[in-house]
Design a protein around this nucleic acid. Structure first.
Lengths: 240, 240
DNA sequence: CGACGAAGTTGAGCTGGCGCAACCTAGGCC
DNA sequence: GGCCTAGGTTGCGCCAGCTCAACTTCGTCG
């Protein structure tokens, strides 16, 4: 087990408000683990025996219904707390987390959770904020799915991904991990066919640039308009 | 301000794990407030200056998009903590809470939140569990909206409502507060027209009993089947 | 280097359920 | 009691997007 240096993590939300000594104490209880691309950090339904902090990489969190329908719940980026099922009083993980790229995470035993939050109340606050902002995101998604067209939802999803994991490149902002049309479809509640058609159309208009497991947003401003329900680009719609 | 007796609340999750003295201390900082049917406890966007515990009644929590699309986020029942926006580091309430029936809630100033969780760590755990289970519910809704037909979603919604706020009556289980077709539509991401059609059809088959702002589930078992995607009732579908 | 598979594209047709519209019905209020 | 309005029902036409299907492109592994 590699020792993790405090300086790597000291300015993450999870460690904010703790003294260097406390930070070291917390780190000493954690294990650092490597997950190669494609590896599962935990599986839906498995006993929630650990919680994690992602140090490096990106994870895809996915959930499968009893009927076998799979969908992408969210992506986790470096610095985020995840797998805190135990803190919400779940005994099993409600979803599967898979490394979208080679990743590194810190893991603590779930059994220490209670002791830790009593000792470091700021940890509870951090977790509450983490879970709270996830709740916000998820509720936003519900609202989108209730009232928006597929095209708007895809635009929203891409913008959110770009904000969370965008990397500036020449052509615009690239999503910083491999993501398929299927993945986008599972995030927006549609089919890969429809996503493919939409992205093709956008590419023609210069809004995005595609590629195998790759999406670059070229015109985020226009995409934002689309997400908010503006009419499509070159359509000269007039209502006399 | 009426004094609230500890015995009324002692066995709620929020007060579990506290000594009677601590329970009294917590109660002494709260105000008890009556909300007549239709009154707003707080409004979306308002400053989140208080958090609440519902003592009696039912609240409808609704959210409106920037485009004016409204939707029902959830219903709150007696004993639940709500309005904990501040704990998730939000400065404003993300939704509106309206009394579905005459209701009573305890209110604490948001400013005491931090002090309280340091003093009573179990409070943080309770809040985390509350928010966590909401996250679970909301994610379940996302999955439903991605993969289920409208009829299944309505069935799921009714079953959830019945579990949360069902009252046993002669004909079956009645939802214990006034709820319109429009409300159900806003919970399931459809229109009141479609909900009305579905409920009419179900009523013919004896699955539910309707009425003005009133729904009684008569055959929860069959509804459960429908929710899980079984074929419609009298349809003799065979696949040879 | 060839070939196999995973990812993506594109066409054609069908349909669930939305939009619109007209119409009932039950309370509440004067 | 009669009016007025919010809530509910129902018919009809249409279209966004799903399904099914055929095909292309790219990466990788033997």
């Amino acid at each position: 087990m590699a020792a993790v240096d405090r300086s790597l993590v000291a300015n993450l939300p999870m460690f904010a408000g703790l003294t260097p000594t406390e930070q070291d104490e917390l780190l000493r209880e954690a294990r650092s683990i490597r997950y190669p691309k494609g590896a599962a950090v935990f599986d839906q339904g498995a006993e929630a025996d650990r919680f994690f902090l992602l140090l490096h990489g990106h994870l895809r969190v996915e959930k499968t219904t009893s009927q076998g329908q799979q969908s992408v719940v969210r992506y986790v980026s470096a610095g985020e707390l995840f797998g805190v099922a135990q803190a919400m009083n779940l005994t099993n993980y409600p979803a599967t987390a898979v490394a979208a790229v080679d990743s590194i995470a810190l893991a603590w035993p779930s059994s220490s959770w209670h002791r830790l939050i009593v000792k470091y109340p700021s940890l509870a606050s951090t977790a509450l904020q983490t879970v709270g902002s996830r709740l916000q995101d998820t509720q936003a998604r519900v609202m989108e799915m209730s009232s928006e067209q597929v095209e708007q939802r895809v635009a929203h999803a891409l913008l959110r991904l770009a904000k969370q994991a965008g990397r500036k490149v020449d052509a615009g902002v690239e999503i910083d991990f491999p993501i398929s049309r299927q993945d986008v479809a599972e995030m927006t509640g549609t089919t890969l066919h429809t996503v493919s058609r939409i992205l093709s159309a956008w590419e023609q208009q210069g809004l995005v640039e595609g590629g195998r497991q790759r999406i670059v947003l070229c015109d985020t401003h226009r995409l934002h308009d689309l997400a908010e329900g503006e009419e499509a680009v070159q359509a000269h719609k007039r209502e006399p």
